[in-house]
């Protein structure tokens, strides 16, 4: 059953899920849950919140599947639900977005293998990496959301705009502003590299 589901297109699975096929929906969820989880995690910095919000977004999508007109892809639609949920969650201040809680199932991968083998170079890179995370976390929420989707998830401005429910131009300006802020706060560390 699982194998046959995996071969089907998103559209076909959506049609089946609309008829109440849980397996079809589970396959759709499997295809997008990781990306959604990572995006939410990048915004909340809390794995439990990210996990709960991803589950909640998928459940909301399942419940309101009949209202999904398939004008956009299923991924974009669920993404949008997830990002809206997360932004509302953060706006309501349910959790301090800067707090990071990791457990044994999650860990930050070490930064890419440093090209410079010297201890000094490695230390500088780690410092920059830490400062960059802090700087991204302290970006205003709309800028942070755009930055996460475009830089961390590799979305185009158009895709990010669809998820965020704004224009491409807005995403473009938010990216520019976000980079200006990051550059200003990281300037001393960037020059030292």
């Amino acid at each position: 059953m699982k194998g046959s589901m995996a071969d089907r297109s998103d559209d076909h699975l959506v049609d089946l899920a609309k008829q109440g096929d849980v397996e079809a929906f589970a396959e759709l969820a499997r295809r997008c849950q990781e990306r959604i989880f990572y995006s939410i995690f990048a915004l909340t910095k809390n794995h439990q919140d990210a996990s709960d919000l991803t589950q909640e977004a998928l459940m909301q999508a399942f419940k309101s599947l009949k209202t999904f007109k398939q004008r956009s892809s299923f991924n974009t639609w669920v993404y949008r639900i997830a990002v809206n949920l997360t932004l509302n969650f953060l706006k309501k201040g349910k959790r301090d977005g800067a707090r990071q809680v990791l457990d044994e199932s999650l860990s930050w991968a070490e930064a890419k293998e440093d090209a410079s083998p010297s201890p000094e170079g490695s230390s500088l890179k780690k410092e920059l990496s830490r400062k960059l995370r802090e700087a991204v976390d302290s970006l205003p929420l709309p800028y942070r959301a755009s930055f996460v989707l475009v830089v961390f998830q590799g979305m185009t401005h158009n895709q990010a705009a669809r998820v965020l429910g704004c224009s491409e131009n807005t995403v473009s300006w938010r990216m520019h502003k976000a980079r200006k802020i990051l550059q200003a706060s990281l300037n001393p560390y960037l020059e030292g590299r």
């Binding site: 990781e34 990572y38 960059l132």
Partner: peptide, 16 residues
């Protein structure tokens, strides 16, 4: 460019 490279390298959360 440096910020972009760094951002892409740090956001690699490993999930078991």
């Amino acid at each position: 460019e440096k910020i972009q490279d760094e951002a892409r390298s740090i956001e690699r959360l490993e999930v078991s």
